[in-house]
Measured scan of single mutants.
Amino acid sequence: RMRTAFTSTQLLELEREFSSNMYLSRLRRIEIATYLNLSEKQVKIWFQNRRVKHKK
């Protein structure tokens, strides 16, 4: 599987969303994925990984 290289714009938006809410509803995940031109799965995994990073 290929590793996703997020653009700086995508990362900025993902981080902004994360700062306001660490957990996404499915609807919000779809909205963000569509807006950032990513798959729902990519957004889901990014949030999972970001939560782990946040815990450390």
Rank of each mutant, 00 (worst) to 15 (best):
R1K: 14
R1T: 06
M2R: 08
M2A: 09
M2C: 06
M2P: 09
R3V: 15
R3E: 15
R3M: 14
R3D: 15
R3I: 14
T4H: 11
T4Y: 14
T4F: 08
T4C: 14
T4G: 12
T4L: 09
T4E: 15
A5G: 13
A5T: 14
A5C: 10
A5N: 12
F6T: 06
F6E: 06
F6H: 08
F6D: 08
T7E: 06
T7C: 03
T7V: 00
T7S: 09
T7L: 02
S8A: 11
S8N: 07
S8P: 11
T9S: 13
T9W: 13
T9M: 09
T9H: 11
T9D: 14
T9C: 12
T9Q: 13
Q10P: 02
L11V: 10
L11M: 13
L12I: 13
L12V: 12
L12E: 15
E13V: 07
E13A: 08
E13Y: 10
L14I: 00
L14P: 01
L14D: 02
L14K: 00
L14E: 01
L14Y: 00
E15I: 02
E15C: 03
E15F: 01
E15V: 02
R16I: 06
R16C: 06
R16D: 10
R16Q: 11
E17L: 04
E17Y: 03
E17H: 01
F18T: 00
F18I: 03
F18H: 00
S19F: 07
S19D: 11
S19C: 11
S20R: 06
N21W: 02
N21V: 03
M22N: 08
M22H: 09
M22V: 08
M22S: 13
Y23E: 13
Y23L: 09
Y23K: 08
Y23N: 12
Y23T: 10
Y23G: 05
Y23M: 08
L24K: 05
L24A: 08
L24T: 05
L24E: 06
S25G: 12
S25M: 00
S25H: 05
R26Y: 15
R26C: 15
R26N: 15
R26H: 15
R26E: 15
L27A: 08
R28N: 01
R28E: 00
R28S: 00
R28Y: 01
R29C: 08
R29I: 08
R29Q: 13
I30Q: 06
I30R: 05
E31V: 03
E31Y: 02
E31K: 06
E31T: 02
E31W: 05
E31I: 06
I32A: 03
I32T: 04
I32C: 04
A33R: 00
A33V: 03
T34Q: 06
T34L: 06
Y35E: 07
Y35I: 09
Y35V: 10
Y35G: 07
L36H: 04
L36E: 01
L36P: 01
L36A: 02
N37F: 06
N37M: 07
L38A: 07
L38T: 10
L38N: 01
L38I: 10
S39R: 05
S39D: 10
S39F: 04
S39M: 03
S39L: 04
S39V: 04
S39G: 06
E40R: 02
E40K: 05
K41M: 14
K41F: 15
K41E: 15
Q42A: 11
Q42R: 07
Q42M: 11
V43W: 05
V43T: 01
V43A: 01
V43N: 03
V43G: 01
K44I: 14
K44C: 14
K44R: 10
K44Y: 15
K44L: 15
I45P: 06
I45E: 15
I45N: 13
W46G: 03
W46N: 04
W46R: 02
F47N: 04
F47L: 04
F47A: 05
F47K: 00
Q48V: 08
Q48T: 09
N49V: 08
N49G: 10
N49S: 12
N49P: 02
N49E: 14
N49L: 11
R50P: 03
R50N: 06
R50L: 04
R50A: 13
R51L: 15
R51W: 14
R51T: 12
V52E: 13
V52P: 05
V52S: 14
V52L: 11
V52M: 11
K53M: 13
K53S: 13
K53L: 11
K53T: 11
H54M: 09
H54F: 09
H54L: 10
H54G: 12
H54K: 06
H54Q: 09
K55R: 09
K55I: 09
K55E: 13
K55F: 13
